[in-house]
């Protein structure tokens, strides 16, 4: 061993006491920006357009409005945008919209909650033990290849046409993506981290708590986004089946009377609920996975 130690205090580069270097680093980019403007990515898609994402929807709305105003679109096929807005106002005023949205939201959320809980438990059992994987993975993969909605006839026979059938159908739809993504994340924990845990002498509970579960969280949250979408989809279908309340029921009734405006209000509500819940999951994702924010941004 030799003695480099005399120079050792120079080794730390975090003290930041290198004024000459710091100044040089600050000055250079400033003078360059002044001359050439910010460097543009030559192979990128181009400069960002303010509110760029709104262009498509606004254009569609414009065409719809123009079509309705000029009479090119028959209101029996598609009501005018302003009719839809007025109808929505009326539905809110007499309370029908709120009560139906509430029923549907409760249905979807309880189905989602049961599905997520079941999917998570199954994924943990299958992901953390070989026996559990042998027991659970096969049946879930089989279930995965059968669309949940194809199970509706059987579920009606078993549970009737009431609320429980609807909630169970939604739960089955939400379970699959949660299971698939969480299980996959648990199974593909980087073996380098397993090695690390071994060299640090971590106990099995600590290994699970500090490495496996946090490592699987991104997978679970990805599954969550699919599960949310799946539960709205299942909701829309089960509400066509003999519902007496909910958005789907409201739309079904409107179909009977040819009220396209109410149908469109229902579609818009489905869309908004979907967007809102996806936004919520993304928000949770951003909070929970803040450790990788610098990569994502």
């Amino acid at each position: 061993m030799n003695t480099h130690t005399t120079e050792s205090t120079n080794a730390t580069d975090t003290t930041g006491r290198r004024p000459a270097l710091v100044r040089a680093a600050k000055d250079a980019p400033v003078s360059r920006t002044a001359r050439r403007g910010l460097a543009r990515r030559r192979l990128g898609p181009g400069l960002p357009i303010p509110y760029g994402r709104a262009i498509g929807p606004v254009l569609l709305l414009a065409i719809w409005s123009a079509g309705s105003a000029t009479g090119l679109i028959d209101p029996r096929n598609l009501s005018a945008p302003w009719t839809v807005v007025t109808t929505a106002g009326d539905l809110i005023a007499d309370g029908r919209l709120q009560s139906n949205v509430w029923t549907s939201a409760v249905r979807a959320l309880s189905g989602l909650a049961y599905g997520v809980a079941a999917g998570l438990v199954l994924a943990l059992i299958a992901g953390l033990s070989r026996l559990g994987e042998g027991l659970i993975d096969g049946p879930v993969q089989i279930k995965r290849s059968i669309p949940s909605l194809a199970l509706i006839p059987l579920l009606i026979l078993w549970f009737g046409i009431g609320e429980s059938m609807k909630v169970i159908t939604i739960a089955l739809g939400a379970l699959v993506p949660i299971y698939i993504h969480t299980h996959n994340a648990l199974r593909t924990i980087d073996s380098r981290y397993v090695e690390l845990a071994e060299t640090l002498g971590l106990s099995r509970p600590r290994f699970l708590l500090h490495i496996v579960l946090p490592g699987a969280l991104p997978g679970f949250l990805l599954g969550m986004r699919f599960a949310v979408t799946a539960s709205w989809l299942a909701l829309a279908v089960v509400e066509q089946v003999n519902a007496t309340s909910g958005i789907g029921y409201m739309m079904g009734l409107a179909r009977t009377y040819g009220q396209t405006d109410i149908i469109i209000v229902g579609l818009v509500v489905y869309g908004l609920l979907g967007l809102l819940s996806d936004g919520l999951v993304r928000l949770v994702e951003r909070k929970a996975l803040s450790w990788r924010r610098t990569l994502a941004d």
């Binding site: 690390l196 640090l200 500090h210 490495i211 946090p214 450790w291």
Partner: peptide
């Protein structure tokens, strides 16, 4: 025995201090 790997092998979901106290 302690091991230093070629990659620093820090857990990305733990802050620096928690990485050092791990175990």
């Amino acid at each position: 025995v302690s091991v230093v790997f070629q990659d620093a092998r820090l857990l990305p979901w733990k802050r620096v201090l928690a990485n050092v106290t791990l175990g």
